[in-house]
Structure formats: C-alpha cells, structure tokens
C-alpha cells in the first residue's frame, strides 16, 4: 500500500468512529500532535500539584486537609496514566521530563499563577478542574484509544475535585467578611486565566483544523469555553459572587452568557514564559528531580546487585 492509500484508509477509520490503537498505522502528524498533547497534559497534572501543595500544610481543618491531600494525589495519578498513554509513542517518561526541563514541552499556563489564599484552593477546584472537565469530557471521545480511556478514568475524579473546590469557595462566600472578601478576590484573579485554559479562538488556533479532522478534538475551543462560561456564571451567582466582567450579560436569544473580549496578549505572554510563576514552577520541578537522582540511582543499583546475587546463587 502506498503512503496515500494508508492515509486514506486511516481517515476512513477515523470517520467511521473507530479507535486507533498503538500498534495501528497512523500518519506522522497524528502521532506528533497526540504525543505533544498527551505529554503536555501529563506535565500539567504534575506541575498543577505545586499551587495546591502550597496550601496543603496550612489547610484549615482535618477534613479540608484530607480532601486536598487526596486531590493532589489524584492529580499525580492522572500524571501517571497520561505518561503511560504518551509512552505508547515510544518515548519514555525520563525523556518527557527532559523535554519539560528544556522548555521544549509546555504545560497548562493556568499553573503559572500563584495560589495566594486558601480561597484559591476553592477557585482552583471549581474553575480549573471545572474547565478541565469540560475539555476532558470531550477528549474522552477522541480517536486515540489510550488517551480516550485515560480521560474516561480521569473525568470521574475531576468531578469530585470540582465539587470539593466549589464547596470550599461557597463556604467562604457565606462566611465572615474576611472570608467573603478572600472568595471574591480569588474569583477575580482566576476567572480570566480559567477562560484561557480552552486556548485561543478557533481562527487563531494553529492545531485546531487537523485535530478536528483526526477527531483528536471533537469540539472547538470556543464551543467548550462557552459551555464552561454558562455553567460557571450560574454557579457564581448561586453563592453570591460576582463575575469580574462589567460587560457580562445574558443573551436571551442564544441562551448564552456573553463576556468581554479576552486579553490574549496576557495569554501569549504567559505561554512564552513571562507569567508570575513560570520560573518558579519549572525550577521547583528541576530541583527536586535533581535531588532525587541519588535515590533513583540507588534503586537501580539495588536491582542490579540483587540480580547478580541471584545469578551467583543459581550458578553455584
């Protein structure tokens, strides 16, 4: 079969809604796009542990501490599944971590903002995990089997995270004046970054066209963003918080909430590395990865030593 015939047959399978598995033939572009996307998703789960970890030691109750700890642990687990899904393209986790450290691989820009108050533990769960669910529910339908299955598994947990985050911020919004202020301040800071999580408008999104053709994405950035806005505005109003957008209004005809234009300069600025925590997040990851080197060396040496010993026993 020629390359073109293979490509045509591949596209037929995609169009018929079949899942593509690691051993199947696939075009290079499909492979590269998915590897980039899945490994970046994995890195996002891992880097995302940092802002929440910032409050783990200061969680204000036993229950809150357990929930936050379990949530961060879930995110580490998501990272693990996703690294495995990305490894189906023949690149191992250690190499992916090198790509993260060299700046070749990115992670979600949302984690380049600081978690300044306990209310941010609410806002992150509510908004960031909330946006992730909208995106990942769509990705669960994607054409690549391992990614799609990882998303199905992960989405259930993201649902818990979103509800737990909302509960934190709802409690604060009905708490003391200081708590209310923290809750509103947190929404003010996280609202626009969370809208940017869906990526640029479809017209400005370099990968959207191919991704849609290959059913890596089955809905556009703007469609997903609008779904998130409609949900979140209602949730904010329900607990007496104000969406920080003077132009926010409900359009009765479209039945959607409309917002001000998003500041995409800010988005690209953070993507390029100029956000408030880009440097901090990456250097934290590098530092502890380096500090763990002797432990990984020890574990490897131990295995080798064990193997030598058991071989010596056998040959005796």
């Amino acid at each position: 079969m020629t390359e073109e015939e293979k490509t045509a047959q591949f596209q037929q399978r995609i169009d018929a809604g079949e899942k593509i598995e690691p051993l199947d033939w696939m075009p290079d572009g499909y492979k590269q796009t998915l590897f980039r996307q899945i490994s970046q998703h994995a890195h996002s789960e891992i880097i995302g542990m940092q802002p929440e970890g910032n409050w783990l030691l200061r969680a204000p109750s036993l229950r809150a501490k357990k929930i936050l700890m379990a949530k961060i642990q879930d995110e580490a687990g998501h990272g693990l599944y996703l690294y495995s899904a990305a490894e189906t393209f023949g690149i191992d986790r250690a190499e992916m971590i090198d790509m993260l450290h060299s700046g070749q691989a990115k992670y979600s820009s949302i984690f380049n903002y600081p978690a300044l108050t306990w209310a941010d533990m609410g806002a992150i769960g509510w908004l960031v995990d909330g946006a992730a669910i909208v995106n990942q529910t769509m990705l669960a339908k994607c054409s690549y089997g391992p990614y799609s299955r990882a998303m199905v598994r992960i989405c259930k947990e993201e649902g818990f995270h979103q509800r737990q985050g909302y509960e934190i911020i709802a409690k604060m919004a009905s708490g003391t004046p200081a708590q209310k202020e923290m809750a509103q301040d947190s929404l003010n800071r996280w609202w626009e970054p969370s809208l940017m999580m869906f990526g640029p408008h479809d017209a400005d999104s370099p990968h959207t066209q191919n991704s849609m053709k290959w059913k890596i994405k089955v809905e556009s950035n703007d469609t997903l963003r609008q779904r998130f806005i409609d949900r979140t505005v209602e949730q904010a109003h329900h607990i007496g918080l104000t969406i920080p957008d003077k132009n926010l209004k409900y359009n009765k005809e479209t039945m959607h909430w409309e917002i001000s234009p998003i500041n995409w300069d800010e988005f690209w600025n953070v993507v390029k590395g100029n956000g408030p925590c880009n440097h901090q997040r990456l250097s934290h990851h590098k530092k502890y990865h380096q500090e763990g080197q002797w432990v990984r060396d020890c574990a490897r040496a131990f295995e080798v030593n064990q193997m030598k010993e058991s071989n010596a026993v056998k040959s005796n």
Binding site: I46, G53, L80, H285, E291
Partner: peptide, 12 residues
Amino acid sequence: WNSCGPYLEEDI
C-alpha cells in the same frame, strides 16, 4: 514531600 519526591510513584 508533596511534589518533592524522587519520582512520581514515590510521591504518591
């Protein structure tokens, strides 16, 4: 140790 472990499995 959160996010400071020698590798992900150990962090978990």
